[in-house]
Design a protein around this nucleic acid. Structure first.
Lengths: 152, 152
DNA sequence: AATGAAATGTAGCCTAGGTTACAAATTAAA
DNA sequence: TTTAATTTGTAACCTAGGCTACATTTCATT
């Protein structure tokens, strides 16, 4: 049985349709995973700061549904990335960069939820799907959502 | 400086609005990450089998934009999960479960892309966003997309 | 001021997914 | 049949994000 259907020139790449575009899409997707977490955290920190006056590790853990250990390690990474300021045994604060990111996320989340609801998706489900979708909506698509919302 | 704004009864949880709903959303989101990868792989395997006659590790690696090592390890996991059949140095085949999953993904992907384009999003961007969004679209939302598409 | 519960931190282990470097198998072609 | 390129496999390492178990710090309440 032939190993492969087509012939190949020795020493040459078979040029199996690398389809750079799609490859890049998937690469971008994986790269974005780290950013998603950052967004979820800064959003939660901003929210907790507003509603409770300050954001503590336990609160974040409850809010995100993980243990305080995970929160701790992630906060260290976010601090390295310049999104938060933390001191041992103290409340967590967003840096200006963190605040900006949080606000962007909040608005985008709101737009996605509103858009889904405008299509007749139930509130609970709209909220649920938005949580996942919001991280993958490009500015262009977000604009399209807003345009559509304006039409009603 | 007070550790926390509100008083607490010793030994009692402060009931910081666990908001089980949102916690569950986020938990579900993380759980789904493993499934996403499976979906990307079976989709790619199905596609390669159609276009090339068989799916090989190198092709998958090129298609997914990762090294063959990553593909190998992931395939082992997918085999454990019952989605693919592999033998050393041989082509990769989908199990019935894998084929079903692939077909579902293909259709859903197509719906999401069509929907985005119907909103005026450019083809390239629609394709790009769909790659990320499709994994987070519930059946209800997918139905809403299809309903909307039918209206045109 | 002492104390005990809650909060925070740390050590160590797990899976998933990514990598490079190197070894072994396969197969097209000389 | 031999050979050499390609493909596949394996070892070892990295980050991210989960976890449990245990140690330490804070602070509200005696």
């Amino acid at each position: 049985m032939p190993r492969r259907i087509k012939k190949t020139v020795p020493g040459r790449k078979p040029a199996v349709r690398p389809s750079s575009q799609q490859v890049e899409n998937l690469r971008r997707l994986r790269r974005d995973r780290a950013v998603e977490t950052a967004q979820d955290y800064v959003e939660a920190i901003a929210d907790l700061t507003t509603t409770l006056g300050e954001a503590r590790v336990v609160d974040l853990a409850r809010r995100l549904g993980v243990t305080h250990v995970t929160v701790n390690r992630t906060l260290a990474r976010l601090q390295r990335a310049g999104y938060v300021n933390t001191k041992p045994y103290r409340a967590i604060f967003l840096t200006p960069a963190g605040s900006t990111l949080a606000e962007e996320c909040r608005q985008r989340h709101q737009t996605v939820v509103s858009f889904l609801r405008s299509l007749g998706v139930a509130d609970k489900i709209a909220e649920m799907d938005a949580e996942g979708i919001e991280h993958h909506v490009s500015p262009e698509t977000l604009a399209a959502f807003e345009r559509q919302l304006g039409k009603r």
